[in-house]
Amino acid sequence: MNRPSPTSFLDRLEAGIVLGAEGYVFELERRGYIKAGPYVPEVVLDAPEAVRQLHREFLRAGSEVMVALTYYAHREKLKDVGRDGQLEEMNRQAVRLANEVAAEGGALVAGNICNTWSYDPADPVRTGELVRAQYREQLSWAVEEGIDLVIAETNDFVGEAEIALQVCQEFSLPAVVNFASVRPEETYDGYGYVEAVQRLADAGAAVVGLNCSRGPVTMLPLLERIRAATDTPIAALPVPYRTTEAVPAFESLTLPNGDRAFPIQLESVSLSRFELADFARRAAEIGVNYLGVCCGGGPHHVRAMAEALGRQTPASRYSPAMELHPVLGSEEQRMDNWQN
């Protein structure tokens, strides 16, 4: 049964920016719970406490949406690791974990569907039905466990994104539909990004926008064009990496020695919490409605973004106080803090 939250997703959008947090897969890979390459969230079954802990860290940092860790938890990807027999168990468990932690802080719970690698625009009818079946089974279990919305993300094809939205509408769920803007100007099925987003807005998505691939520098100009083209609420969840006009997507970043940085040598092109805070302020000025961070993001990024929006979070109790540092702070500052 779908669980009503104290304040619905649409009501929160009306009230102001909704802050979310993603990047679960990359963060759990860094912590040793997900295998880079297949990136299947086996951790949901193998180490559920690690998932709970990351949910809690994002919640404490200011995220208002706990995203069920079902990214790549679809039939085709689970076959790659020999666990397609645990498909339902993994999906249900992921939503249960998200619900458990969301209840600790009044957060919303989002079901999650993503690019399937099954869609082929040269054969859209046959492959589209394969995609539709995968989305239907994932969301049927998510709805039974209780979700407030769906995030349909990292879409490379307009055709696949449209199927995702249609399935969300079958379940009467508000949908955030985001594109991964890997190519400089258009989706893999040939739509300019502004047109792609507008098509999904016209089809009834609650929120449309971008996630993954682009860092703040290369996402912001595209967000400005999207904002100018639609009145529908828009989403922005960049990766915290130093993309450039010459290399707009992090999948193509290289290191000085020519090695590929993506996906497991990205540390040297990472952005600081301050740069994500600056992105949050600039995105708010543009008129972004759903804001967050994607692959590579951590709780410190989310807290910095929340504080840049003028919010105090549970984790703000431990925000830096460099005046108390034994080298960087002064004795006078330390005494003032002690006395007060």
Rank of each mutant, 00 (worst) to 15 (best):
L45V: 11
A61W: 06
R96E: 07
E224Q: 14
R52Y: 07
A308P: 11
L130A: 06
E160N: 09
R96I: 10
A249K: 05
E49R: 12
L222E: 13
P174H: 10
E129I: 06
N91I: 06
Q86H: 10
F58N: 11
P248W: 12
L255M: 11
V18N: 00
Q93L: 10
G329K: 10
S213Y: 02
L324Y: 09
A246L: 14
R227Q: 03
P240G: 09
T187I: 04
N211E: 00
V208Y: 15
A304T: 05
L271R: 12
V131L: 04
E49Q: 15
S330I: 07
L139V: 12
I286T: 09
E88Q: 00
A36V: 10
D189F: 09
V81L: 05
P314R: 03
D156W: 11
E224N: 01
G20Q: 01
N340W: 06
Y71T: 00
S8H: 03
I151P: 11
Q169S: 06
G128T: 14
T232K: 10
G82H: 10
G192K: 07
V109P: 06
M90R: 02
N2V: 14
Q198W: 05
L78V: 02
A36R: 15
E27S: 14
C168K: 11
E275Q: 13
I226R: 12
V194R: 14
L69N: 05
G32M: 11
L200Y: 01
M322G: 02
R303H: 00
H74W: 00
E170P: 05
L59N: 12
G62I: 04
R317S: 08
G23K: 09
T230V: 15
G258K: 09
